[in-house]
Design a protein around this nucleic acid. Structure first.
Lengths: 130, 130
DNA sequence: TGTAAGGCCTACTTTTTAGTTAGCTATTGA
DNA sequence: TCAATAGCTAACTAAAAAGTAGGCCTTACA
């Protein structure tokens, strides 16, 4: 091919077909809620189900538990059962989840800069958030 | 609040409501195709419509032109009209689009590492790709 | 002359994603 | 004893995203 790009190089993994590594990564962290959940766990280290629920106000419980399950399945987060009798759990990042740390930071920072360009001073407006 | 997290801090921008900067960034580059398109323009510097079409084989033309329009609207890419008579165009990253450079690199690298962990040697398999 | 390539757009259908409501088990606190 | 909190799940519906098919104009090429 004239542009040095192969026409049809596909990657098959877990019954899904990807065209390139970017695609692969997006397969794990794409979607509307995953990066948000991961960022919160990155920022707060560990959180209970209801903490996440409170901190991600627009996420329905259905979406939350669904995404948590997928993230756990893909080994990006860990679910730790704290107690059985009163059933209490705690979510945290696995090593794989932590390896995306620079990504969370970059995306958050870029968002703040973008807001700044649009004359919204997030730092000023955020009170206790960060 | 006990966790030092504000209950309902929302950011309003362009008639959309966001909960945090991560959310803001995802509003611009989220979705199934945008990062893929951006990465290709980052990697190849500039590309015509049909080059993109050929390099992103699973993207339908509908999606491609729709996403290109949104990316242009959000000033992440630039559409340059090369000629009028034979209508020819070229897409490239704007400064804002380029400012996401580290993100493209990170996501691509992370995908390659992830494949490696799954015993797929992308470097070996990719021939001319990179 | 007619076919392909470049650069799209529109209408319609399907799939995916997400929202809503309700319900379940168990424990703590008033 | 009763409500509230934690941690979910399931069923059903609605909305958003994506796929499919076709069409349109112009120019280059055989």
């Amino acid at each position: 091919m004239a542009n040095g790009f192969p026409n049809k190089l596909m990657i098959t993994l877990n019954d899904k077909i990807y065209t390139c590594p970017v695609d692969v990564t997006l397969g794990l962290i794409g979607g509307k809620w995953k990066l948000l959940i991961l960022f919160h766990l990155h920022y707060f280290t560990r959180k209970s189900y209801s903490d996440l629920k409170a901190n991600l106000p627009r996420v329905s419980e259905k979406m939350l538990s669904q995404q948590l399950k997928e993230l756990e399945r893909d080994k990006l987060i860990l679910k730790n059962q704290l107690s059985v009798k009163p059933y209490r759990v705690e979510y945290s990042l696995t090593e794989r989840g932590k390896s995306l740390g620079p990504l969370y930071e970059f995306i958050s920072k870029w968002g703040i800069d973008y807001l700044m360009e649009n004359n919204i001073d997030y730092i000023k407006d955020q009170h206790l958030y960060k």
